[in-house]
Design a binder for these strands. Structure first.
Ligand code: ZN
Ligand code: ZN
Ligand code: ZN
Ligand code: ZN
Lengths: 168, 168
DNA sequence: TATCAGATTGAGAATCAATCTCAAAATAGA
DNA sequence: TCTATTTTGAGATTGATTCTCAATCTGATA
């Protein structure tokens, strides 16, 4: 397939590999696996999930690679709620999305909103150089509509916590 | 003093105590200390910091109280960067601020922007009920202006990681 | 005020993510 | 090929958060 998303992923991969090389880093198999996995994702993935999915790559290497990619401006951390941290690639074109997180089941959706981006870019505070921004909308997805019956515990719905980019 | 901030703090405290009571929770000294401490803060404070500042209150109680207050919609978690989680009170009036986080030293400033709020409120996605939002701008504070000389390590500036509401 | 069911507490253990260590292995360039 | 550098990963360590559960406290009622 050759959806725009797939093209963007390829762009990012090329761009990432170039920057890695320029930084004088070696081209090692374990790190490359981490990069390839990130290139495949449309949205955030946690470090631990990467570690689980990548056989033949040590935990330390996963965390190290993520940190290097962060330093090179190739990936960014995103807050997935409930204290979970995820990482997703930063597209060189600047194209990006933000997140809707269901407080109840933890499901994550992505969204884009041009008006919001404009408002963000208009913000300037003296003495502070803004380099990036993160926006998270919290609430309830359709599966978890309120009002919740006054049950004691919260039987969280099943399913992946991260739902790749349904562009609504 | 009786600044607007101080008044808001008092409002929150009253509101919080009422909600605690309505929820059928007892009025215990340890939990009250947690609530009082939160009422005093203008911006986010970490759970561990609360634990350190509160003598005569067990760690478990601090975390428990925070969770209860979260469930009652009285406090919210905020991402302070570097994986640090903070908590701050939610004013019943809906008045709130967002955060600027220095990627280099971790300093946190708060800001308000009406235009941004308007843009946020205009966002609607079918099947998702937005209940709250979190916005974080990342970058460099004046003390940590780029470009950073190609030093090996990062000598983070000293000082508190959280800088209360300088409304710029 | 006495009583008691239910709420609350906290010391310490347990869990879980993330970081660190360092000897061994892999890489890039000469 | 040779070697200086970079990279790796198993396991130990750290640090934050959660859990456990017997002892204590509270609020409501008699
Ligand atoms: Zn995403
Ligand atoms: Zn944006
Ligand atoms: Zn704040
Ligand atoms: Zn807002």
């Amino acid at each position: 397939m050759s959806t725009p998303a797939r093209k963007e992923a390829a762009d990012w991969l090329t761009h990432a590999e170039l920057k890695i090389h320029d930084a004088g880093l070696h081209r090692s198999t374990p790190r490359q696996k981490v990069i390839d996995l990130l290139a495949d994702q449309d949205c955030a993935i946690t470090a631990l999930e990467m570690d689980q999915r990548l056989s033949g790559v040590g935990r330390a290497t996963v965390y190290r690679a993520i940190e290097q990619l962060e330093d090179l401006g190739l990936v960014q951390k995103v807050d997935l709620g409930k204290g979970a941290q995820g990482f997703e690639k930063i597209d060189p074109s600047g194209h990006h999305h933000h997140h809707l997180v269901c407080e109840h089941c933890g499901r994550v959706q992505s969204f884009e909103d041009e008006r919001l981006e404009k408002a963000i870019h208009r913000i300037h505070r003296r003495g502070f150089t803004v380099e990036s921004h993160e926006i998270t909308l919290r609430g309830r997805c359709s599966d978890c509509a309120r009002p919740e019956p006054m049950s004691v515990s919260r039987p969280a719905p099943t399913g992946s916590r991260i739902n790749a980019g349904a562009r609504l």
